[in-house]
């Protein structure tokens, strides 16, 4: 008992004021090293590899929207030089074909976008073109979703609705094996 009482007299509280300093130091370290950068990008699904050459398909030329990008980053859309700023609108018109023109896609389910680039094409241009083509589809999906009474196309929509929209306007973007005219040495 005597020991106990004498101990309680000696044992004062541990000074905790430096605790804050230590915590601050750690805090500042993590503040400095933190990079809250979210990784964003264009998600694509590559086609599986096969050693056989793809089967020859007979396609009606009105259903094919060919986009070629050469080593000088010039665009050739349906065999005519084109401007990238108009690509999105043209793609949308081609897929939806609102006025039923004879040289645009019969219906969205038959539309095929064919993209071909050169090994010398700059990645920036390639991604811009890819982005525009993808944007054309997502804008069409958006319109479709609005017609069905939804605020817009997003992953928040029920799966059945998304399937319905994508069944009506499927995204068919085929990438051909690139040419190698402008290969960087």
């Amino acid at each position: 008992m005597a020991k106990n009482s004498s101990r309680s007299r000696v044992a004062t509280e541990i000074n905790a004021s430096s605790m804050a300093d230590i915590a601050f130091l750690l805090l500042i370290f993590f503040l400095v090293t933190t990079t809250i950068d979210v990784d964003k990008g264009i998600l694509v699904k590559l086609p599986p590899w096969s050693n056989e050459p793809p089967p020859e398909m007979k396609l009606n030329s009105r259903n094919v929207f060919s986009v070629l990008v050469n080593a000088n980053n010039d665009l050739l859309v349906r065999k005519e030089p084109a401007d990238i700023a108009k690509l999105r609108e043209r793609t949308k018109e081609f897929i939806a074909n609102p006025s039923g023109q004879a040289d645009l896609a019969e219906k969205p389910t038959k539309a095929i976008i064919s993209l071909k680039n050169d090994r010398g094409t700059s990645y920036e241009t390639y991604l811009e073109v890819y982005n525009e083509l993808k944007a054309a589809y997502s804008e069409l999906w958006d319109d479709e979703a609005k017609a069905l009474g939804h605020p817009g196309y997003s992953d928040d929509l029920p799966l059945s609705v998304r399937k319905q929209i994508k069944g009506k306007i499927p995204m068919v973007l085929s990438e051909a094996e690139p040419t190698a005219f402008g290969e960087e040495k």
């Binding site: 990784d39 964003k40 990008g41 264009i42 998600l43 694509v44 699904k45 590559l46 086609p47 599986p48 590899w49 991604l127 890819y130 982005n131």
Partner: peptide
């Protein structure tokens, strides 16, 4: 891309900024 396809790694994300 070709090598990724051969390896069956088909989900690809081209990183980009907004």
């Amino acid at each position: 891309k070709t090598e990724l396809r051969k390896q069956g790694q088909l989900r690809v994300n081209y990183s980009a900024r907004q």
